[in-house]
Design a protein around this nucleic acid. Sequence first.
DNA 1: TATTTTCGTGTAATCGATTACATAATTTTT
DNA 2: AAAAATTATGTAATCGATTACACGAAAATA
Lengths: 342, 342
Amino acid sequence: MSEKVTIYDIAEKLNITAATVSRALNNNPKIKEATRELVIKTASEMNYKQNKLALALKSGRSNNIGVIVPRIDSNFFASVIRGIEEELYPHGYQVIICQTHESIKRENENLHTLVDAQVDGIMMSVTGISNENDSAFRNVLEKNVPLIFFDRSKHIDGVSSVTINDFKGGYLATKHLIDEGCRQIAHLSGDRSLDIFNNRFLGYKQALLDSGLTFNEEHVIHVKSSVEAGKEATTTLLGLQTPPDAIFSSSDFAALGAIQELQARNYSIPNDFCVAGFSNEPFTKFMELSITSVDQSPLEMGKMSARVFLEQVDKTDTIKIEKKVVLAPELHIRKSSTRTNF
Amino acid sequence: MSEKVTIYDIAEKLNITAATVSRALNNNPKIKEATRELVIKTASEMNYKQNKLALALKSGRSNNIGVIVPRIDSNFFASVIRGIEEELYPHGYQVIICQTHESIKRENENLHTLVDAQVDGIMMSVTGISNENDSAFRNVLEKNVPLIFFDRSKHIDGVSSVTINDFKGGYLATKHLIDEGCRQIAHLSGDRSLDIFNNRFLGYKQALLDSGLTFNEEHVIHVKSSVEAGKEATTTLLGLQTPPDAIFSSSDFAALGAIQELQARNYSIPNDFCVAGFSNEPFTKFMELSITSVDQSPLEMGKMSARVFLEQVDKTDTIKIEKKVVLAPELHIRKSSTRTNF
DNA sequence: TATTTTCGTGTAATCGATTACATAATTTTT
DNA sequence: AAAAATTATGTAATCGATTACACGAAAATA
């Protein structure tokens, strides 16, 4: 029933050696055409399937690549993974998913597990920039496993990354709010020890300065990426001496929270107050009051990461090429910040 | 630099054989305590890591399990995968993700690829019930690879499944709409050759009959799971002789489309018209007009699938146990269908 | 025809870990 | 102290495929 057919079975049947069978199946030019055809025909008849594990052991390559993300049930990460999978599938790679659940300890474990599982490469979005787990990263590099960061990256020599231009994203969103007539623009930021959040903040600040507006430290609030956090931050902002008339949020969820809080207080959006988010989560365009947001082209990011991996995977002998790909963010302007009618 | 340490290296260093090293590391009781400690200490010093590929080849078990879903960038599937991963991680399994993109051909390929990759089990939500790819399924079963369906399943002898009670889900949602005073309830259905959609439809129909309402064939429309399809279907429904006063949609996206179309026509929801969806997608609760929806507890579904797999994986000798787990759906009542005030 | 090439296939090692079986070392029993 | 039982370790096969090297046979050259 569950007959596992090996090249030895084929060899026996044809009175030849496994070596010949192997060569015939691999199109080795040294095999006689008649033999090759016979082997291929017989293999097919016997329903032979190459044992990938044996191949992996022999070659040292598993044809699996690992992907580590904070969580998979977020549209952004799921889309990146989709991109990676689509790009790598034609090359015969399988994608192994690991989630850190925002825990450095777990990130550590995942890195070790993947290396132990002999993956041919690792693509990840780091969970934090703490140094606690540097040994796990060192382990990856020592074992010469290609490592590629996407979106959230760490500064490690020789490691490539695919990110978007978060500075520009923050700049575009803020500039847009200014263009709509807002003058007191607040910013909901994430953990600024992570580049992505720091750069969005810097872009925001630069846009203010370039437009001759003053940067107000009070208007920058650190929030978690949640609706609740957005509400709280908004409450705080509205209680200030000089309350803002717009919010640029690093998180769509926090932006949504802000909108809900504002509406609860009878603010009219976008007339009294404008809001823009970041990530272009699906719900931003579904809302009746659709939310302006910066798109990070996650699908493209995934595909690009996969391509960088493919470029790198063969050149293990060459000196490591560090490649930094920076994708352009795209501002999707929607109702939450559109005062002018088209 | 990239020194791969094997048990032979350890053996050589300690002047013993690899067999002894292997036994010591595997806590074989026949090993002298002193030897065991020495080996473990040395292994750790030399930074030895077990080669999982060699182990996999020897044991025939890869410690990978495959998950096949139509797509990963949907909250439902991503959540199921999250559940599977969380449950299997402690058991040392890695999760390999494959997407069919709703193509039977691709589903076929994925099944073969996973079997070839020697996964220890496959969990999947089928893309269609066509018989085109029965040979791929037969291949899986012949190779004795445990197969488990979740959500969308096929009827195959000896294959376990984890689903929700879609009939009850449809019944609950419809009954709720009736309780809110709706009398002409339409239904947006999916591909009814798939059990999940057929059962939701049957639950809908039964709820109507149980309440003494007449079932109107015209009120059932087949739609794809998209906002656009929901809009079109709503337009059709409103043009009928007896237009409906409520919609129960098998898809949250179609339900959203319906709401948008209704609002565009100045219907007041929930007063003039009630809407309920299915899947409890995140956006349903984010909307200002939040959408009533049936929750499928995807996280629980993933965990349960993993548990069924774990039960089955050891008993390859025993006669296959076919296990059908049916989870209870949960109706989340929200603004789109709440006429009564709390 | 003898010699050199070329061609096709076989032999055996290898990837790294596990394990049935054999054997040496030690302890227990008589 | 000899025999038996126990314990610890070594030997070698195995999982399935690939491949350097060897070698015989056929073809080409001298």
